[in-house]
Each structure stands twice: as C-alpha cells, then as structure tokens.
Amino acid sequence: MRIIKTALPLLVVFLTGTMVMGASSDRYLHIRVSNPGQNEQVRVNVPLAFAEKVIPAITSGELRNGKVHVGHLSANSVNLKVILDALKTAPEGEFVTVQENDSDVRVAKEHGQLIVHVVDKGSKDKENVDVTIPWDVALALSSDTDGDQINVEAAIKALENAGDVTLVSVTSQAETVRIWIDSSSTAEHTSMLKK
C-alpha cells in the first residue's frame, strides 16, 4: 500500500509530462482574405512543417532551392545582411518616416520586430498595410544567400520558433487580408451545408 501511495504521484507526473511532450507543437501559417461587399472569403491554413519541406522542392520562376532571386542587390552595393545586422543592434525607434500626398510610410523597430506601416491615401479604397517581421525571421531571410537572394526556407524555419504574430495586415474599404502564425490548426471555418 505504501508503495502504491509513493508510486502514484510519480506516475501522475510521468503521464502528465508525457502528455505535455506529446502535445502538438505544430505551427500554422494562416491567410484570410475577406471581401464583405461581395460576401467572399478565403481561408488558408498551412502547417509550417509542410511549407518547410515543400518550398525547397519548388523550382519555379525566381524560386529555387528555397531561395528567391530578388534582383541586383549586390550589384547596387546593397548588403542586406549587413543592414539587418546593424538594425538588430540599433535601439528601438522609428527609422524611416515618409509622408506624401498619396501615402504615408513608417519603418520602425519595436519589441524586437521590424514594423512597416503604409497608408495608401491615393487609392480609391484607401489601404492600410502593416507588416511585422520578427528580427530572427528578417535575419533568416538574408542568411546563407549570395546577396541577390532571400532565403525563404530559412525564414519559414525561423517562423516556427517565433511566437504568435500577425505578419501582414491589409485593410481597405473593399477587403481585408490577414496573415498570421499560431498553433491552431484552423482559423475557424464554416461547416459544409449539404442541400
């Protein structure tokens, strides 16, 4: 009896630990596009582990081996990695603010993230665009590249370790687009109605 009393709490701890370790730690990239005016909605839920395995296999256009060729950055003396490394150690604050008649642009570093905020005042729908990139992801984009590439595969791996974050948010009068990362397998969905 004494052995059972001793072993039972240990068994509970062991089982709980096993359940916690076995719990899903899958991360998902969610994309939601809503157009309320036309009653249209698109939802995409992609497991990041899936994207990580598929992206390197895609050879299409500028995307090869998990990297995207983005032009002549090195020819124009732009070293993205050095710039991002410098920004990472820079103190938080606004780096760039541009205000024009048709748009406002703000680039800042806040809470260890690169924030880009764009207000497009010139368009009919007056779009607001917010892009938030965790620094580790931004650095991963420039890792293991030859200067004219961005490393999408590495960025996806870095996203798996990032917390829940909204990466892109676009709002306009016509539609809203949101792209975010979390551990939920679905970002709510309507059930199929069989008529």
């Binding site: 899903s24 899958d26 009653n39 249209e40 909605q41 698109v42 939802r43 995409v44 839920n45 992609v46 497991p47 582990a49 899936f50 397998s185 679905t186 969905h189 309507t190």
Partner: peptide
C-alpha cells in the same frame, strides 16, 4: 501533418 482544413473558399 495533423488533420485540419487546408483551404476554404466561400
């Protein structure tokens, strides 16, 4: 991958 909805278009 775990089971779940991948794409939904309405």
């Amino acid at each position: 991958c775990p089971d779940g909805v991948l794409v939904e278009v309405t």
